[in-house]
């Protein structure tokens, strides 16, 4: 079930440098959103920007009928979003897209969640689901990376879940110094990523996704990536969100908004 409606802002607070968590009232999204799914949010001044933008669902509060996303202020829409106060409204369509597929039997798999910057929110929702479904906490490994400590999000939420958590920053200002793939390499070298019973889930900037996908391929680990493209409609009709994939018939385009945003890393043709 999906909605397309104006939703009331419940809260909109800063969580990191240029990053905010906005909570919105939408019983449909709160009840139906799955880890990896997104909502298309539209705020305009006149006709600018014309289209809504996609944001991954971060937390859901089904009892209250609220959900939230974390957004990084980048351009016009997110600047307008940052000005929204409690009681204002935002046009929301969703939940949209597919979800991360949990490898089964979930209790026997090592789930490796790799987050880059503002890619962390949907992986938090996934980690929460895994824990709630009874997957032992030590079998949920989260590698949460960002350029600097002040850009790292969701860290305290992951910590609360009690999962096996790594923080990594490129400048070493928090946690390990380096990139998420450095942590993965370390884990692998210590034999902690057994290819037969591991599943990698990644969300973050394209360059990171590509690096994680290559790492996974090299170590024969199944890997799912949440792809970032522009998404004018979010509903599968404009074909402006194409992702190049390898199929049995050769190269083809899939739509990130309905066939994704989560793709099997092995099928993606990296630019």
């Amino acid at each position: 079930m999906r909605c397309a409606e104006y939703c009331e802002v419940v809260a909109n607070r800063q969580v990191a440098t240029s990053q905010f968590e906005i909570q919105l009232h939408s019983p449909v999204v709160a009840r139906h959103a799955q880890p990896g799914q997104f909502v298309q949010m539209r705020v305009q001044s006149g006709y600018e920007p014309l289209f809504g933008r996609p944001f991954s669902v971060f937390r859901t509060f089904p009892e209250r009928g609220d959900f939230s996303v974390i957004y990084l202020v980048r351009g016009t829409l997110t600047q307008l979003l940052a000005q929204k106060r409690r009681g204002d409204t935002v046009f929301v369509v969703g939940p949209l897209g597919n979800r991360f597929l949990v490898r089964q039997p979930a209790g026997e798999v090592l789930h490796v969640l790799v987050a880059g910057g503002v890619g962390a929110p949907p992986l938090y929702l996934l980690a929460e689901e895994l824990v709630q479904k009874g997957v032992p906490r030590q079998q949920v490994v989260v590698v949460n990376g960002a350029r600097r400590h002040d850009l790292l999000v969701c860290q305290e939420h992951f910590a609360e879940l009690g999962v096996h958590l790594w923080a990594v920053t490129e400048d070493g200002s928090l946690g390990e110094k380096g990139k998420v793939t450095d942590i993965l390499k370390g884990l692998s070298q210590r034999g902690e990523l057994p290819s037969g019973r591991c599943q990698v889930y990644a969300c973050g900037p394209s360059a990171m996704l590509e690096a994680v996908a290559k790492f996974a391929q090299k170590h024969d680990l199944p890997c799912q990536v949440s792809m970032e493209t522009m998404m004018p409609c979010g509903l599968g009709v404009c074909l402006g969100c194409a992702v190049k994939v390898r199929t049995s018939n050769g190269i083809d385009y899939k739509r990130a908004c309905v066939d994704g945003p989560v793709f099997d890393a092995a099928e993606v043709v990296w630019a």
């Binding site: 006709y47 493209t229 004018p232 404009c238």
Partner: peptide, 20 residues
């Protein structure tokens, strides 16, 4: 038809260009 390479759409002032 598979369509054109990405990027295929871009927002412009009060409009959008597409080359799907």
């Amino acid at each position: 038809r598979a369509g054109n390479p990405m990027p295929r759409m871009v927002e412009t002032a009060a409009g959008c260009l597409n080359s799907i």
